[in-house]
Design a protein around this nucleic acid. Structure first.
Lengths: 364, 364
DNA sequence: CCAGCGAATGTAAGCGCATACAGTAGAGGC
DNA sequence: GCCTCTACTGTATGCGCTTACATTCGCTGG
């Protein structure tokens, strides 16, 4: 049972292959009666057009690509076993450390936004998540299949990016600038953090906020840290006079930071974290230790992940419109496809500061 | 600047196109020196092979498809606006109802599992999420692009499924049986619920558990309900003697159910819900109403979603291996591609009963 | 020194479709 | 009754690559 082709349908309907093609692409160009005959044949033969052939002939694939880095530990679960002899297992499930499932929900939302926007414009979406081995093969593979490609952060080395960008337009999502030939989409990291910090200074009278930073090589963290410092300067406070804590964006690492703070015995009025994970890590330690948030110390995050909505107290944070990021990336690709020669565009999406109980309630 | 082709590379390297192709597909067949020359040309010209042409010639695309139904309200956010004039917005975020973002994290996990397994086997993955309008076009489109396709639940009408399955193998994920020609992957709904219910009967001495059912047309719920009844019968209890509550799988609907129960003034010893959402809905009402869980009433769910791990009390539930579902689906497709004529296979993945505080702690 | 052979490379024929261009059949105008 | 114009439909080419087959090259054994 080989798959039916245009030739089969044409023969079955008694027309030429051109007519079959027209019925599918530009139905208006075909007389209604023959159109019906062709469609009947399509139905009867179970014909589904080959996208490969179509793409080749039409010189466009109708697919957009999305490439993510992988941050979780997928490698080690690679060989999970399916062949258990038992269908059900009873487990007394003790509360876990919170680190079990790293919420790269971040990606999920970007993905959903992209997927949606792509189909809305008649494009399919192909996803690749970079694995340890060599992203090169995967990126090349994807690049060969799509009309445009969006790449998250710095998941792809520069020269590889250069290489594929000679074939298709490439859009960078939420990463640092890389050359001036690419389109970028990102969020207002600096402005968001500046607004949040400003709120703490102005409304809560905080004078000694301490920044809990992410990895030194994170451009996102750098931008946020910048916003933090700008707010301080605007309030006449010297940022250099305040300590900075290294948190690495991870929850466990943040717990260690919290322990140290407690050991030192001196808490600042506010701890401003570069992301939500670290803020949650602090809460993990403060709660059991009897440190009251926000009475004894204010804690804030950045990202707006779900867990921050479910924590106790709920986390004040800066919400990034992840879904919109994906959608903006798709729009950027489409725009570039339509106007190949327009100058590179960088779009910054607005963020939203969410004031919740980890900062509010301490003041009047 | 047109994209380079094999011809360009061949000319540049002074070889025939066949040699270029070989260098990329079967490097061992080419002398090392010429291989190096060709690769240099590839690099210099920024050559990325066209997957369309390759797929057409090779008669396989190297892509697997995944089709989801859409359960969330994406339609109305379709026209979200990007052009705000403000980059930051300050919002006092009040605790929400919990219904804001329907956790179709279910899909995300299936997707991640599939994506991972696909690339592991050298296949790319293409995703489609069924939108209101017509899934037909999307499914057909995907079917034309892939070597095999997995479809979630009943997201695709039977005749469309028949149509595309004449071109490529189709695997059904977690849905009801549909004809006997498809491969299926699903989880042990019945066994899981039977085990959980049995635990309540045996360990907690429950004699009158009430089942909170999902939609009447949900095959998943039907299987779970069956497991519930089987456990009762095994314990010598007549299921027909006990009431069943309709919950529709939704959290808000479950809250209404809880209100009614409270109004009636009589609570059973245990409420066994067809999914986690409904169990959480019950908790939403019981907590504020002063009903102690699990002391006054035991509540259990099914699915193992994250929110059940973060609720108070934490939810006893049956955890489905979502990621494994996706991976199993991919394996099924690959297996089918390799052995087109093997009889249809149905694989059931094992589940895990997670005993947490919404059921434990009441007994000894 | 030459036949013979394997390795390396070239030649050429599609893969299934879109589409420019050519052709055909009516319908209307004269 | 003939010509013109429009509306369809058919013919033929090529998209960029894989691959069976033919060819050439460089050696080896006789």
């Amino acid at each position: 049972m080989k798959a039916a082709t245009v030739y089969d349908v044409a023969a079955h309907a008694g027309v030429s292959i051109a007519t079959v093609s027209r019925v599918l692409r530009r139905p208006g160009d075909v007389r209604a009666s023959t159109r019906a005959r062709v469609l009947a044949s399509v139905q009867e033969l179970g014909y589904v057009p080959s996208a490969s052939a179509r793409s080749l002939a039409a010189r466009r694939t109708g697919v957009l690509g999305l490439f993510f880095p992988s941050i979780d530990d997928e490698e080690n679960q690679a060989e999970a076993v399916f062949e258990q002899d038992t269908q059900v297992q009873l487990v007394v499930d003790i509360p876990d450390t919170g680190e079990v499932r790293p919420p790269n929900l971040y990606f999920d939302e970007v993905l959903r936004g992209s997927e949606r926007e792509a189909w809305r414009h008649g494009f399919a979406l192909m996803v690749g998540v970079g694995r340890g081995s060599n992203p090169a093969a995967m990126v090349n593979d994807i690049a060969g299949r799509v009309d445009g490609m969006a790449v998250l952060a710095r998941s792809v080395p520069d020269e590889l990016l250069d290489h594929v960008s000679r074939r298709i337009p490439v859009v960078l999502i939420a990463g640092p600038r890389r050359g001036d030939d690419y389109d970028h989409v990102s969020v207002s990291n600096t402005e968001g953090m500046r607004a949040l910090t400003g709120h703490l200074l102005d409304r809560h009278g905080v004078r000694d906020p301490v920044y809990v930073a992410g990895p030194a090589d994170s451009p996102d963290d750098a931008e946020r840290h910048l916003g933090f410092r700008q707010a301080l300067e605007a309030a006449g406070i010297d940022p250099a006079a305040l300590p900075v804590l290294r948190g690495n964006f991870s929850r466990v690492q943040a717990r260690a930071v919290a322990e140290e703070l407690l050991a030192a015995g001196t808490l600042p009025r506010a701890l401003v974290c570069g992301n939500d994970q670290m803020a949650l890590g602090l809460l993990d330690v403060f709660g059991p230790a009897g440190v009251r948030v926000p009475v004894d110390v204010i804690v804030t995050g950045f990202d707006g992940i779900d867990a921050g909505r479910l924590s106790t107290p709920r986390l004040t944070t800066v919400h990034q419109p992840m879904g919109d990021l994906g959608r903006a990336a798709v729009r950027a690709m489409l725009s570039r496809l339509e106007h190949p020669d327009q100058p590179p565009i960088t779009s910054r999406l607005p963020v939203k500061v969410l004031l919740r109980e980890s900062s509010e309630g301490a003041s009047a």
